[in-house]
């Protein structure tokens, strides 16, 4: 199982990218900061990571109405990593 699950692109994170060279990823729940750093530097050879911040995004109750009434559930718990770069930049769309 790879450490990096998917890059995150939102309005707020785009601002972070532009202002602080910070990029965000959804990462494996059990990945440690050094593992994430290694993974990033493997995947994008041109960049140097300065700092990795992680946070566990909590589960929240989710529900939706269906034909047979209200279905209740919870969103999964996941880990978000915000990576500050020393040099280089990441182009998420180069891969597509």
């Amino acid at each position: 199982m790879s450490v990096l699950v998917q890059p995150l692109i939102t309005e707020k994170l785009t601002r972070l990218q532009e202002e602080h060279q910070q990029y965000a990823f959804e990462v494996d729940r059990n990945a440690s900061k050094p593992e994430i750093r290694r993974a990033i530097e493997d995947k994008y050879p041109d960049v140097k990571v300065a700092r990795v911040n992680t946070m566990i995004m909590p589960s929240k109750p989710k529900g939706r109405y269906t034909k047979s009434g209200f279905v209740q559930g919870r969103s999964k718990v996941w880990k978000k990593a915000i990576i500050t770069l020393k040099e280089g930049e990441i182009d998420f769309f180069a891969e597509i």
């Binding site: 995150l8 692109i9 939102t10 309005e11 994170l13 785009t14």
Partner: peptide
């Protein structure tokens, strides 16, 4: 686009 308010992309 998901993650952006309309017109803010």
């Amino acid at each position: 686009m998901p993650g952006f308010r309309p017109g803010r992309v």
